[in-house]
Amino acid sequence: MRKKYFSLLKDLDSKSESMGREKDDKVLILDGLNNFLRVFAANPALNDDGDHIGGLVGFLNSLGLLIRTHNPTRLVICFDGKGGSQRRRKVYSDYKENRRTRVKLNRNLDQTADEEYDSMKVQMTKLGEYLGYLPITVLSMDNVEADDVIAYCAQNILKKEVVIVSTDRDFYQIVNDRITVWNPIKKQLIDKDYIHDKFNISIDNFIWYRVLDGDKSDNIPGIPGVGLKTLQKAFPILQQEGQVSVDDIMEYIDQKEKLLKVDEKIRESKDIIERNFDLMQLKEVIMPESMKSNVRSIINNSNPKLDIYSFKKSFMRDKLYTNIKNLDYWLRVNFFPLNVF
């Protein structure tokens, strides 16, 4: 049986060489926790023992769908490292404070919030094991958030096409000619044209929309009453190319003959705006140089391969077969394409 797999892999190797694609030609970077929480909340699947496995099988199936949809040459998954929010909590002590309260995510399961949290931890641990058997690069750096690692990889290490997979709109600020964002819920590709048409703000200044709007999921308050339409009307300067700084906006307000309410509000909120910039901007990734070096080394030197035997062993142990049918075919269709690079 194993000889059959090695033969298939060899055939795929030769096909890949004839196609002329290289490992980093098209890289998908997946926001790991963002994806896990989404599938965990949506998938009520149980195994034969009655254990919830929806987060685990949902995540694995989502990887297959992404690979089949985008046909990448490589898949990188980033998770928050231990203590990842530390830097931003020093800037704003209430950063992500709302996440400390446990709330039920999957309403289809008869579990308390605490029971669900325990199940989530078990499934996340097992997920790490399964990902280690797949031809996927996994990154999780202590004291660094996944957003920073994703932004650094996309902008500073990888040089060709990058598709960031996440529902987090903070990534829109780093979209350019080679970096796009895939929204897995809407199944929509976010590129430069989309951002311009949707927000009527240049990508260089999309961060202003995020800073003023805030981010409820991260417990970052915005500036009340300063929505997108107000921003577009009061500050056409944000439509131009080149990033507009906080000082630029203050100077722009000073030059107005007649001030609007929004001008006064932004003046009064300068400290909050500067704080939100520090919390939300991803153009200039704030990360220790030693950490950047570690990330670069992993991206440049990682070459994971599919370990069918170990994957199957864990698959049978966790009784995932009721939710993933025909494992041999499933692995071949979804992950062999990445195994050849």
Rank of each mutant, 00 (worst) to 15 (best):
Y5A: 12
F6Q: 14
L9S: 02
D11H: 11
S16A: 15
K26E: 01
F36H: 04
R38D: 02
F40Y: 07
A41F: 09
A41L: 09
A41E: 10
A42G: 08
A42W: 06
L46D: 01
D48V: 07
D49T: 14
G58C: 00
L65I: 05
L65P: 02
H70A: 04
T73M: 01
G81D: 01
G83S: 06
Q86A: 10
R87L: 09
R89H: 03
K90S: 07
S93Y: 14
K96H: 08
N108R: 10
D114Q: 03
E116M: 03
M120I: 01
T125P: 03
G128R: 08
G128K: 08
P135I: 09
P135V: 06
T137Q: 00
S140R: 11
D142P: 09
D142Y: 06
V144G: 09
D147F: 06
D148H: 12
I150N: 02
Y152R: 13
Q155S: 14
K160S: 15
K160H: 15
S166P: 05
T167A: 11
Q173G: 04
I174H: 04
V175N: 05
N183Y: 05
K187D: 01
D191P: 03
D193P: 08
I195E: 03
D197A: 08
I203C: 12
I203S: 11
I203W: 10
K216A: 14
D218G: 11
D218A: 12
V226R: 10
L228P: 11
T230F: 10
L231P: 09
P236G: 07
V244N: 10
V246C: 13
V246H: 11
D254R: 12
D254E: 13
Q255G: 09
L259Y: 06
L259V: 02
L260W: 13
K265W: 07
S269E: 07
K270V: 13
R275M: 15
L279C: 05
M291C: 12
R296M: 10
I299V: 09
N301D: 03
K312F: 12
D318A: 05
K319S: 00
N323A: 13
N326R: 03
D328E: 09
L331V: 12
P337L: 04
V340Q: 15
F341Y: 15
